[in-house]
């Protein structure tokens, strides 16, 4: 077996995965659906860049084609960027190949004759370590690995005519209205949880956020059960992952599904009335107390700081 194949519909992720794959010393092949992307990816560590020329704009529709290609090439690893399209493509490809798959690898290390991966389970409270020693599909989320340009190595571009799956067709696409929120990029995040009594009380979070220059996030319950904030505001599994320098929560109990989304924050501060709330185990600084008393005091103190 030889050869690592890489695909992502996200350019930055493609570049990062190529740089990761190049650490293996194996031959690395980037798969793209787009000649322009291949041209831009030549200096990120790939030996080869293969442009699939097919009749569908949907990457997901190339799963069977890619599975056949990986089989023919006797590939040892298929690295896929974990975007919505990438995840579906990856899981279908693994299905067609009847091979193993590691979803959203938190780490991936090439060792002699094997690859060691870790991933988180149970909402981030358990880490599972797996050893790969046969063809496996691995998806990798954004931000885990960095792209490194290697000007001295230039990949060779070739193309291949293929037939995509024609059974799913795009009718229309419309950009998602972000409603001013970009939580993933926020440097500070104020997060509200179910400990808040009524929607008007979001004002106290907004006051704090304004003083800090923070974005407002929330738990899933606030967005999906109470509908107090748009779904783009919720943090955690199936919601946003944040990595601010400061995350500060009020009335957030800290269930694992939420905590998984804040893990990469530099400093986590929490205010909650329940001293046994799991959020305090995930926090650097905790205040046990009534958020309606604490938060306005904090806002005032920060304003004067």
């Amino acid at each position: 077996m030889s050869g690592i194949y890489v695909y992502s519909d996200n350019f930055g992720l493609s570049a990062a995965l190529l740089s990761l794959a190049a650490q293996s010393g194996e031959e690395v092949c980037a798969i793209t659906l787009d000649q322009d992307q291949a041209d831009e990816l030549v200096n990120y560590g790939a030996d080869r860049l293969l442009v699939l020329k097919g009749d569908s704009p949907r990457p997901e529709s190339y799963a069977k084609v890619i599975a056949e290609l990986l089989k023919k090439e006797n590939a040892e690893l298929f690295l896929v960027g974990s975007t919505a399209r990438g995840r579906e493509l990856a899981a279908k490809t693994a299905g067609y190949l009847d091979c193993g798959m590691v979803s959203d690898a938190a780490s991936l290390v090439f060792e002699v004759g094997k690859i060691v991966t870790t991933r988180l389970m149970y909402g981030g409270s358990v880490v599972q370590t797996e050893i790969i020693n046969s063809l496996t599909v691995v998806t990798v989320p954004v931000g885990k690995f960095e792209a490194a340009k290697n000007e001295s190595k230039k990949g060779v571009i070739s193309s291949l005519e293929v037939k995509a799956d024609q059974r799913v067709n795009i009718i229309e696409t419309s950009p998602i209205k972000k409603e001013g929120i970009d939580l993933a990029a926020a440097d500070k995040v104020v997060c509200i949880g179910m400990g808040l009594d009524k929607p008007e009380d979001i004002q106290i979070a907004q006051d704090l956020a304004q003083v800090l220059g923070a974005e407002i996030g929330c738990t899933r319950g606030i967005a999906e059960e109470r509908h107090w904030l748009p779904v783009q505001s919720y943090i955690g599994i199936s919601g946003a992952n944040v990595k601010p320098s400061l995350y500060i929560s009020m009335g957030v109990s800290g269930q694992v599904q939420h905590v998984v989304g804040i893990r990469d924050s530099r400093i986590i501060a929490a205010v909650d009335s329940n001293d046994k709330a799991p959020i305090f185990k995930a926090a650097d600084y905790g205040i046990v107390g009534d958020l309606y008393e604490i938060i306005p005091l904090l806002t005032e103190a920060l304003r004067n700081a």
């Binding site: 988180l120 409270s125 880490v127 370590t129 797996e130 046969s134 496996t136 305090f280 926090a283």
Partner: peptide, 21 residues
């Protein structure tokens, strides 16, 4: 049969200061 070899399954520890003020 599992396609990968399971090597570890343990608690994930977040290194936090856990200071209650």
């Amino acid at each position: 049969a599992a396609k990968t070899e399971l090597q570890g399954f343990e608690a994930y520890v977040m290194n936090r200061k856990n200071v209650i003020l």
